[in-house]
Simulated assay, not measured.
Amino acid sequence: MIEPIPVVEENIYAFRFRGRLTHDDYREFIPLVEDLIRQHGRISLLLELEDFRGWDTEAAFDDFRFGTRHEDDFERIAVVGDKAWERWMVALARPFTDAEIRYFDRDHIDEAWAWLKATPEPADQPPEPRPWQHVLVATDFSLASRHAVVQARRLAQLDGARLSVIHVIEEPIVYDEYGVYLPMEVDLDQALLEAARQHMQRLVEELALEDAVTEIEFGAPAATVVEYAREQDCDLIVTGSRGRRG
C-alpha cells in the first residue's frame, strides 16, 4: 500500500510505503506524483518505509519505468526505514536518478525532514576556460593541414592569441649498398628549403596570415614541432588529421 502523508512544506511531498507493493498501488501513486510534477516542476520526496516487503514483479517494473522517466524531476529524495537491505536499496538507486537521495533510520526522521527543507548547495561550476595565448599550427601544405591552419587562425582570433605556423622538412635518408647512412648534399637541403618557403608564402597570402609568425625547420616533424612549442611557450598545437609528412 502507498498512502500520502500530509505535508505543509512547499514542493515537499511524503508517502508511506507499507507491506508488499503491487501494480494497483502504482496505478494510483504514479498519476498523483506526475500531477505534482506538472504543477510544481522539480519536487522533493520523503518515502517512509513501514513493514516494507518490496514489490511484486509488475510493481517492480512500474517503479523502474517511473524512475527512469522522471530521473530529472526530483530535487531530493529522503528514504526513511529500519532495515539494512533498505539502505542498500537506496545506494543502488543513486546511479539512476539526478536527484540527491539519502537514507535515514526511522529514529532520525527529523533529520530527514531538515535535510529536505534545507536549500540545496549549488553544484560546483567548472572553472572558466583560460583563453589561448599562443597557438601553433603545423602544416605540410596538404589540404588536410590547410584546414588545420584555418581552424588555428579562427581559434587565435577568438582569444586574441598569437599565431605561429611551422613546417618541418624531414631530411631524406640515403644508404649506400652496405647500409651506411649517407647525408644528402647541401644543395638538396637548400632546394627543399626554397620550395618550402614558396609554399609558406603562398599559404600566407591565400589565408591572410600576415600577422602570423612562420617558421621552417629541419628535423623529425613531431619532435621538432613539440620542441618549438616548448621554446616559444605555445599553449595549443593544431595539426591536420591526415596529410603528407612534415
Rank of each mutant, 00 (worst) to 15 (best):
P95M: 08
F96R: 02
T97R: 12
I101H: 12
I101P: 07
I101W: 12
R102T: 06
F104K: 04
F104D: 11
R106H: 15
R106N: 15
I109N: 02
D110V: 14
E111L: 03
A112R: 01
W113I: 08
L116W: 10
T119Q: 10
T119R: 03
P122Y: 01
D124A: 15
P127L: 14
P127S: 12
P127I: 10
P129A: 10
R130L: 14
P131S: 10
W132D: 10
Q133I: 03
H134L: 01
H134F: 00
V135K: 08
T139V: 13
F141L: 09
F141A: 06
S142Y: 05
S142V: 07
A144R: 02
V149D: 00
V150Y: 06
V150E: 15
Q157W: 00
Q157C: 03
D159A: 11
G160Y: 04
A161G: 08
H167Y: 11
H167I: 12
I169E: 03
I169M: 03
E170A: 09
E170I: 03
E170V: 05
P172T: 05
Y178L: 12
G179N: 04
V180D: 05
L182C: 04
L182E: 09
P183E: 07
V186N: 03
V186P: 01
L188N: 00
L188H: 02
Q190G: 02
A191M: 09
L192V: 08
E194D: 11
A196N: 09
R197S: 14
Q198A: 15
Q198I: 14
R202E: 14
V204Q: 12
V204E: 13
E205P: 01
E205V: 11
E206Q: 12
